[in-house]
């Protein structure tokens, strides 16, 4: 027993020394960016988008980067912000509206650090909200769906603002093209259950939906599988990542949010001493961030005249003439 205790003490002393050297290493002039994500970056979805933004900053701006996954646990957010800020990180991106409160609490203690919050409209000193207005590309999808399809279905993960906004945009787009067009929504209640997403999509298709768009982070892919298995008459759009491989015949187009480009742009400004003076809302007007392209590979590609119409609608959204969702 004595031996164990002594060994423990020796071990502890060693750790202490190691700790000192580790913290000494961090004292240099590099530009550092940290990222807080609510889930796992291994999923093709929301968390990956944040991770890609971080990687973009690393590769394009040469910053030193680090990230932490916080299991959607609000109690741990404040600590993670403080951990990064106290280690001299210049920019910390909280990837999700849920990080806003914690950032607001920590930020006054670290006035030199910039706290970016995804999917938020906040602007208070060094806390800046960045939002990608997903309702805009979804408006286009809804518009196309109502022009080309009989009935549409949307499969969501949990009912959170980024997904609600997207679906609101879709519904408005569909109504804009055809007020009588029916759009149904299903939430599976999590972001991990691929099987549930798949069955939800299959169910909608069986009930007559010929236009289905899944939006459930890691579970999204289940929706595309259902669509691919249901034959080429069911249409969809690939969102966030490129899912063309999964359902090549069904995907009419791609909405890819190159959030990384947007974040790189903002972080570059911060590096040069220019913090944004208001919150940032990326939309179709930011062509480098929000890319909406139509594909020719699909079994029933978007017809030429509709493409022209879409270009027109897109321009109107970018110009602010069409409002895709309530602000």
């Amino acid at each position: 027993m004595n031996l164990t205790r002594r060994a423990c003490l020796a071990g502890a002393a060693g750790l202490l020394l190691a700790g000192i050297s580790a913290s000494a290493m961090a004292q240099d002039g590099e530009f550092k960016m940290g990222l807080l994500v609510p889930g796992s970056v291994s999923e093709e979805g929301w968390n990956r988008i944040g991770y890609n933004a971080l990687k973009g900053v690393e590769e394009q701006l040469g910053a030193k980067v680090s990230y932490v996954e916080l299991q959607q646990n609000p109690a741990s957010f404040e600590k993670a912000f403080r951990d990064y800020a106290s280690q001299g990180f210049n920019v910390i991106l909280g990837h999700g509206f849920e990080f806003q409160d914690a950032a607001l609490t920590v930020a006054p203690e670290f006035p030199d650090t910039t706290f970016l919050i995804s999917s938020s409209y906040i602007h208070e000193d060094n806390v800046i909200g960045l939002n990608t207005d997903t309702s805009q590309p979804f408006y286009l999808m809804g518009y196309i769906a109502a022009k080309m399809g009989k009935k549409a279905g949307l499969v969501g993960g949990m009912e959170i603002p980024p997904i609600q906004q997207a679906f609101e945009g879709f519904v408005n787009g569909a109504k804009g093209a055809n007020p009588a067009f029916e759009v149904n929504q299903v939430y599976i209640g999590n972001f991990t259950d691929i099987s549930a997403a798949k069955e939800a999509a299959l169910g909608m298709i069986a009930q007559g939906a010929d236009f289905v768009v899944p939006n459930a982070s890691g579970a999204t892919v289940g929706g595309y599988q259902a669509i691919a298995e249901s034959g080429p008459d069911v249409k969809t759009f690939s969102i966030f990542s490129d899912f063309t491989e999964v359902a090549p015949k069904n995907i009419l187009g791609l909405y890819v949010a190159d959030y990384a480009q947007g974040v790189v742009r903002i972080v570059k400004g911060i590096m040069e001493g220019q913090r944004p003076e208001s919150n940032v809302d990326f939309g179709l007007a930011d062509a480098d961030v929000m890319k909406f392209t139509l594909s020719d590979e699909a079994a029933h590609p978007v017809p030429e005249e509709l493409r022209k119409e879409i270009e027109d609608v897109k321009a109107k959204i970018a110009a602010g003439e069409i409002v895709t969702r309530q602000k």
Partner: peptide
């Protein structure tokens, strides 16, 4: 004592 608000994922297990 910690979050002062209710969220969907208040406990990480």
């Amino acid at each position: 004592g910690v979050t002062f608000r209710l969220y969907q994922n208040i406990s990480p297990g």
